[in-house]
Amino acid sequence: MKRQIPVLLVFVFGVFMIFQYFSPHEYSEWIYKFLMDWIYIIGIFAMALGIWSLIHVSYDKIKNKRHDWGYSVVTLAALFIMMFFGITGFDENGEWGFYFMTQEGLTNPMFRNFFNHILVPIETTMFSLLAFFISSAAYRAFRARNVLATMLLVSALVVMLRFNPYFGEAVGLYMNKIAAWLLNVPNMAAKRAILIGIGLGMVGTALKVVLGIERGYMGKG
């Protein structure tokens, strides 16, 4: 009961999805659309589980006064305040209430402030950290002392320095040409080899899942 029903469900729906690809029939398309809607809706219910876990872990930290518990207060406060602004707002009569989704999106001005002045700056700054990390990663590659890492580094350097003006026009020109060739030709070959491998790996894993051979996702490997 605990294991057979899920395996059966996986098999039935998995086989149906394979079948529907080959069958353009109205009925198979109709069921396909249902199933896609369903996955989407179930995902929304999972949100509750996620938020519950976040609250639970933070609360636990605060209650037991674990190291850095004060920051968990910040997380919980931010979560509740943002949720409050996220589900309340002004309605069309300018009255505050449990409603505010309109054509323009979420209209609560505080929600927008949180979005524009907390979410956006932190998000873009986190993203921009990549500039530093890619430099330190390049340095790490420099120190590598084996053939493979050297090959990686040399081709990275060729591509990185392709617009460098200090090599003089002639060298720069050829570097640019070689970089373009590297990005077009061997790149395509390697990507294709990887994609064929990935395709097979995915297909193999998916088939194992549908046939109930692979059950790792249910907690039984």
Binding site: A137, R140, I194, I198, G204
Partner: peptide, 27 residues
């Protein structure tokens, strides 16, 4: 990972990287 675009970064910064299909083989 099977995300081809991210493989170079893992290869540079990690001690071992399973490339593409190797991830599926790993299990």
């Amino acid at each position: 990972t099977d995300e081809v675009g991210q493989l170079p970064f893992f290869i540079v910064a990690c001690d071992y990287t399973l490339i593409g299909e190797e991830l599926y083989a790993a299990s």
